[in-house]
Amino acid sequence: MAEDDIYTKDGTTDFKNKPAIKKQTGTWKACPYILGNECCERLAYYGINTNLVNYLKFQLNQRNVEAVNNVTNWSGTCYVTPLLGAFMADAYLGRYWTIACFSIIYVFVRNDNFDIITPSIGGLKPHCDGKNGCHPTGLQTAVFFIGLYLIALGTGGIKPCVSSFGADQFDDSDEGEKKKKSSFFNWFYFSINIGALVASSVLVWIQTNVGWGWGFGIPAAAMAIAVMSFFTGTRLYRNQKPGGSPLTRICQVLIASFRKFQVQVPNDKSLLYETVDEVSAVKGSRKLDHTEQLR
């Protein structure tokens, strides 16, 4: 094999920050650990979200409207925090370290909240009796919501990075690997749906019929497995280097588009202002192919 064919050509590196070796990293060798992480993380997330209204009503003694409003606010936060996670990954940490750091936040919060360890530390579990329901104190409610929103922060660092991190395991300059990437995304969404299905059926039944401790303990264990799965594949991953703030580049494109909207685009793409190298001039990014779209 020629020396040029030993390493990937998309700028990815291994866990030692050296050029990634094709035969030893990436592709389907690395993907099972990423898919396992995503499946368990989605099971943990939907294990909270699916039955959270009932938890707030019966354990925190909230009215139905108040409980639904709190769940809606929390769900909305879970879909806003990925903006922060994506920015941190692209600009500073890279996808691997963003997933790793936010997963650790996620798993520690899961194990310190939701009826699992909290009963043993300062009576943080609300007192419940068979007739009048539960009677949480202000401190107990505050600790619960702090943990809940830390979980939103954790999922915000995982959600935007896992799919693109999986795509990083396939070199687009290699036609064979490029074809395998579409198969990865099929398995990726299959993993999401498996996690959501188990959470919405099995875990909801356990929470309702067995107890909240088991109902939230199983997702916490699943999240711990997700973290272990992710770290197990560290030596096999291909990593893209962070390329600085994407917001800066977006602003540059908008300003350049406004200033040059009357410029005629040449038919010959060789006349376009392009870098002569095969890789992008932006550190950590791929060079895009020329297309006729968005002229």
Rank of each mutant, 00 (worst) to 15 (best):
T141I: 13
A199N: 14
G154H: 04
V107E: 08
T50W: 05
G284E: 01
L150F: 10
W74I: 10
I225E: 06
Y237F: 15
G215L: 11
Y96N: 09
E175Q: 08
K125P: 08
F170M: 03
W205V: 15
A167I: 04
P19Y: 06
V68Y: 15
C161F: 07
T248A: 03
L254T: 02
T81C: 11
G157R: 04
G157H: 05
G233H: 14
D4Q: 11
V53K: 06
G147E: 03
K131V: 11
D168V: 04
R286L: 11
L124M: 07
K23G: 12
E41A: 11
D174T: 09
E274P: 00
V276W: 01
I206G: 06
D14T: 11
S191H: 04
G213R: 04
T234A: 15
P219I: 03
Q262A: 01
L139Y: 10
T118M: 03
K241S: 13
W212K: 14
W97A: 15
P126W: 00
C101H: 02
I121T: 10
A220H: 02
F170P: 02
V162E: 01
G166R: 08
K18I: 12
M1D: 13
A67Y: 09
S164K: 05
G244E: 02
V202S: 08
W97D: 10
S245L: 03
K181M: 14
P126V: 04
